[in-house]
Amino acid sequence: MQTEIRHLLECHVVGSDGQPIGKVGQVYLNDRTGEPEWVTVRTGFFGMRQTFVPLANARRSGEEIRVPYDREMIKGAPNIDVNSRLSLKEEADLYRYYGMRPTDVPPQRAGEPRTRAPIAEPAAKPGARQAAGERAGDDRDIEMTRSEERLRIGKESRETGHVRLRKRVETQSVQERVPLSHEEVVIEREPIHDGEVSATYELTEEDRQMTLYEERPVVSKETRPVERIHVHKERVQHEETVEGEVRKERLEIDTDGTARGGGPRRPGER
């Protein structure tokens, strides 16, 4: 039961039209059955007013309690002090307002006076009693936390490609002009005139020879380095625009009657 009450206190009441009414303030139990029978929901200026809503025909889903009444009807419920026990008359007024008939109310409750029912003490008399809730009493100061989402942008590294350095052997034809030389026979004949020869020559046979040479191209190959290739990585910085959607909470203030003061407001706050 305590677990159920704690879960109820964490819920928000939603009306029949799907509009949020407010957060549950307190839970009231039926003294005879011990089951939750009423909850109070905070409405009005900064949620300072707490209005009773019956749990009969209500449906709870997660942290929401959907009741078959709209916001205006709940705000118009009888104004009853939430810091003490419900009397029979007050409970009857509430049932009458919400159009319900309390068929399970025992007849001996008629005329019972209204008494406080602290959480730690067991109920001594029948009637709906205050089970738990936010601190009753001084509601002059209230507060609410407004939250909003912000983008959290990080960075990750991923592969974008590979670089492979490979060496292969190619064959190509090369032409190059080479200057060559060779020896040729040149015959020069010089006539001898009379009177120029003083010696006596005899006829003889004689054989002499001369070797002729020429140059020919000789092809050989050698391997020598002609270029060194070095591949490395370097980090290049750039910027990109990242877009996303974020949500933020907006506070709405409902006032009952005439509210004075209000204090300073931030620019743009309504």
Rank of each mutant, 00 (worst) to 15 (best):
residue 179 P to C: 00
residue 168 R to A: 05
residue 178 V to A: 06
residue 147 S to P: 00
residue 143 E to V: 10
residue 171 T to K: 10
residue 172 Q to K: 13
residue 177 R to W: 06
residue 164 R to P: 00
residue 154 G to M: 01
residue 170 E to Y: 10
residue 151 L to A: 13
residue 162 H to Y: 03
residue 164 R to T: 07
residue 146 R to D: 01
residue 150 R to Q: 11
residue 156 E to W: 01
residue 154 G to R: 00
residue 179 P to D: 04
residue 161 G to P: 08
residue 171 T to D: 09
residue 157 S to E: 13
residue 147 S to W: 14
residue 149 E to N: 07
residue 170 E to V: 15
residue 178 V to C: 02
residue 170 E to R: 14
residue 172 Q to S: 09
residue 148 E to S: 04
residue 176 E to Q: 15
residue 154 G to V: 00
residue 175 Q to R: 15
residue 176 E to R: 15
residue 171 T to H: 14
residue 176 E to D: 10
residue 170 E to K: 13
residue 179 P to K: 09
residue 166 R to L: 04
residue 169 V to S: 11
residue 147 S to N: 09
residue 177 R to V: 11
residue 165 L to C: 05
residue 152 R to G: 08
residue 167 K to G: 03
residue 148 E to C: 03
residue 155 K to V: 08
residue 143 E to M: 09
residue 161 G to A: 07
residue 176 E to I: 07
residue 172 Q to F: 11
residue 176 E to V: 14
residue 169 V to I: 09
residue 177 R to K: 13
residue 151 L to C: 11
residue 147 S to T: 12
residue 159 E to R: 07
residue 174 V to Y: 13
residue 151 L to S: 10
residue 155 K to E: 14
residue 162 H to G: 02
residue 147 S to F: 11
residue 174 V to C: 04
residue 156 E to M: 09
residue 151 L to W: 02
residue 165 L to R: 04
residue 173 S to Y: 11
residue 176 E to W: 01
residue 157 S to G: 04
residue 158 R to M: 05
residue 161 G to D: 06
residue 152 R to I: 03
residue 173 S to A: 15
residue 167 K to A: 08
residue 178 V to P: 01
residue 166 R to S: 08
residue 164 R to K: 09
residue 153 I to E: 02
residue 152 R to N: 11
residue 171 T to C: 04
residue 159 E to T: 09
residue 148 E to W: 06
residue 161 G to Y: 03
residue 177 R to C: 01
residue 154 G to K: 01
residue 168 R to V: 10
residue 158 R to L: 04
residue 143 E to Q: 15
residue 149 E to L: 08
residue 160 T to I: 15
residue 149 E to V: 06
residue 146 R to A: 14
residue 171 T to M: 07
residue 173 S to R: 15
residue 157 S to P: 00
residue 158 R to C: 02
residue 164 R to C: 00
residue 153 I to Q: 02
residue 163 V to G: 01
residue 175 Q to G: 11
residue 161 G to I: 03
residue 157 S to T: 13
residue 149 E to K: 10
residue 165 L to M: 06
residue 172 Q to Y: 13
residue 175 Q to S: 15
residue 158 R to G: 06
residue 157 S to M: 10
residue 151 L to Y: 03
residue 144 M to E: 12
residue 149 E to Q: 15
residue 152 R to Q: 07
residue 178 V to G: 02
residue 163 V to N: 01
residue 144 M to I: 11
residue 147 S to I: 04
residue 159 E to V: 08
residue 160 T to E: 11
residue 178 V to R: 11
residue 170 E to Q: 09
residue 154 G to F: 01
residue 148 E to H: 14
residue 150 R to F: 07
residue 173 S to T: 15
residue 157 S to R: 14
residue 173 S to L: 14
